[in-house]
Amino acid sequence: MLMKNLGISIVAVVILIALPALASVQGYNFFLTVFPYAAFAVFLGGFIYRMVKWWIIPVPFRITTTCGQQKSLPWIKQSPLENPAGFWGVAGRMALEIFLFRSLFRNTSVEISGKRPVYGSAKWLWFFGLVFHWSLLIIVLRHLRFFIEPVAPWIAGLSALDGFFEIGIPALYLSDFAVLAGLSVLFLRRVIIPRVRYISLPVDYFALLLILGIVVTGLLMRHFFSTDLLAVKSIVLGWITLSPVVPAGIGIFFYIHLFLVFTLMVWFPFSKLMHLGGVFLSPTRILANNNRRERHINPWNAPVKVHTYAEYEDEFRDKMKAVGLPVDKE
């Protein structure tokens, strides 16, 4: 199972690396002129498509996870983040979820000690997940220096802060180190823990290996096979100004890096990585628990013809009185 699923994703990533590595000069022209627009269009379009698809699914009943006391009588203390009652509670819960991965923080581990299960906290998935995602964000933001001219001070400042320790030339970015650490742990978790390995599919490994490929080619370009950054920035600005250029003499790692990024962009909206958008539309998180205060009508309920007791009594009042039955209204 591991060999098969992991093997499939390794083969897929190797093919994705081999394609640009073996491409011809015409192929490179294609990489730099057609692919970026195609990949970006699929990313944007696919992302919006997925969001709209989720959005039009009716949520007739609020299925928010409630892990604390809900808003009730004034003298019962509510737990506003665990059981949000309104917009601000939900906003707080979402902020904690998105920026700090609060649900992962509650991860527990269970072991059989003697003959009974013992529960303990397990923070390492939370920690390395957080390290991975934050460093990935910083890396993406740092790349804006190739996209923006003149480079905004905050981008340069972020890079300077990231390379604060000035280890080596060019300086090693701490986020590069952190993203590798995060990815390694997330990958080893799938390989080593039997229960996680059992439920791991080829795409699970593929997501990690693809990002790992992007990180490693990026690091190789920065630290070992230097790339002409002027040419790189001219390519990127060429895309943005809709006049793509194809400079000569850019190393192979640049094309591999680029091709893996395009693959990620195209694949992203149709993969589990869509949790980037999905977290904003997950009903267990984004809804306030107001099921007891507001009536939520199921939108697909068929119209039902009802005959209420009041109407019944109106219809039969005379007959009911005649046989001595009690009536609400005289």
């Binding site: 992302f47 919006i48 804006l144 923006i148 001219e149 003149p150 905004a152 943005i240 100004t241």
Partner: peptide, 17 residues
Amino acid sequence: FIVLATFFFWYGTGKSS
């Protein structure tokens, strides 16, 4: 989302490249 994803299209493009 669209504004963030197309950040580089509208931010700082006043200058020639």
